[in-house]
Write a protein that binds this DNA or RNA. Sequence first.
DNA 1: TCCTCTCGATAGACGGGCCCTATCATGTCG
DNA 2: CGACATGATAGGGCCCGTCTATCGAGAGGA
Lengths: 300, 300
Amino acid sequence: MQLRLLRYFTTLAREGHFARAAEACGVTQPTLSAGIAALEEQFGHRLVLRERRYIGLSPEGQAMLPWAQQLIAVYDGMAHAMEAIDGPIQGEFRLGVIPAAMPATGYLARALLAGHPASTLSVRSLTSREIERGLVAFDLDAGLTYLDHEPPADMLAAPLYAERYIFLARAGGDFDGRTSIGWAEAAGSDLCLLHPGMQNRRILDTRLAERGLAIRPRATADSYVALLAMVQAGGFATIMPDSYLALLPGMSWARILPFDDPAPASRIGVIVPNRHPIGPLAAAALAVARAVALPDGFRI
Amino acid sequence: MQLRLLRYFTTLAREGHFARAAEACGVTQPTLSAGIAALEEQFGHRLVLRERRYIGLSPEGQAMLPWAQQLIAVYDGMAHAMEAIDGPIQGEFRLGVIPAAMPATGYLARALLAGHPASTLSVRSLTSREIERGLVAFDLDAGLTYLDHEPPADMLAAPLYAERYIFLARAGGDFDGRTSIGWAEAAGSDLCLLHPGMQNRRILDTRLAERGLAIRPRATADSYVALLAMVQAGGFATIMPDSYLALLPGMSWARILPFDDPAPASRIGVIVPNRHPIGPLAAAALAVARAVALPDGFRI
DNA sequence: TCCTCTCGATAGACGGGCCCTATCATGTCG
DNA sequence: CGACATGATAGGGCCCGTCTATCGAGAGGA
């Protein structure tokens, strides 16, 4: 009957340690132990396996965990909704962002925090799948990700901008003086790209497959910064979204070539879980995304 | 922090009366009054308007109510899930059924209760919109309704059977000896039909509009029993789903005519809200609907 | 082998909060 | 004007959650 015990439970599941979980909950370790014991007594199942130390959750505990997380999230949503009645939105926006969209985070963050001065923002770089998982598991309030590719179900969306691919090579190489490039030539270059499992890479592979091209990168990474560093160091070119150009206008070492046959632009925007009722944080994120105007370099 | 207070709150909102709500919660009236006061103290808002008697919910209370209902529903879902671990599903299935599907309730109920002997079933006759509202508001566990017309969002579905329209007139009239009827002739008869707002009526109107026909019933009702009674009394014919024929095989007073140009069959099935995690009652309802075999007269 | 550290359980005391019964205050209706 | 209905208030009892202090079993190292 008490959410407090469920908070103990979820915290313990996250921390994997009684004393640390107790500290995170602001109580002493015996209190947390008693709370877990009370939960187990109440539901008639051993929830936490332990023998002189924390082992893990029992199957029953694993079955219970998502319910407990949802209960806590709904309670927090209610508390936020009540706080938001008389005054600005308080609390922390938890925003999950795919790496390709990270350059747009600044404008979204500025608008979000300007519109809601009493709130704070926590940005986490995640894959699109992790964002979806975090949203349904109540670990995130909103996501910044692709809207059209593998769209998650049961989401409300607000488009922010659209990205196109560009070809990026080191200045002083074969591409000086060029004004555009074809897909086949790009695919034949020595490329460094994202890992095949990442969504942006999957989209790129799809784009190439539509043209009958396959790609064999010489190097892969999970970070655009790594790709930029490899291109800068020389020996590689890459294909990446143009959104990073808005972030890095002064890359004199770079040759940036658009494709002469541009692929369809990919819309990127904010998504929030479509729940009833919708929480004030999600509603605010959506409203801000619909109102914010991104500068040139981000085009819709 | 305590779900108990939220239970007081939602019960009070439903009952509109402090003493009755207290009795429904199994506590005394002062306890419930103190609970409401504690909630208002905790959230800093007057939730219940009252001046010597219950008036209603304040705007803040109305905003809070769906959150409280969701919290209670999620808690109940968790409790059910934990109970369902070791043993049969307990508790009450709350099933909303549209009138057109009511004849199929018996077989679904039998299968549901046979598969889950420790559970009980509560059937409520509702419109399709009320079912959808009840499912998202956690007042229902499952619905039995149309799957293809105006399908509600975020639902999991399991088809049960498909219905077709038949024409029903009193024996001894102009339709004796006929084996089928056309839509135009039927539309020109003296008809009694459901009220225009009901979904089955809207579907029928759509079917007729597809054939360029409009309909002007002489009488309308909100109950198929009323339609049957009016046909039996004489002076009216009606158009209704064939599922009622399975329920009433001995209607010697009736002439039942299929349409010579049958409309597409309408699938009827069980829907449950698509939530994460899904509760054991919803899962069981869906599983039973997928496993149950309906007798002849209900055809898929 | 033994000492020490870690980790969770247990004991006992304290305090708060929840619920009860009893009663009051006020509005309504006959 | 009196009886009833309705919700608030007062006071007492008890349960339950939290704390500090301590125990007991393993793990790891000298």
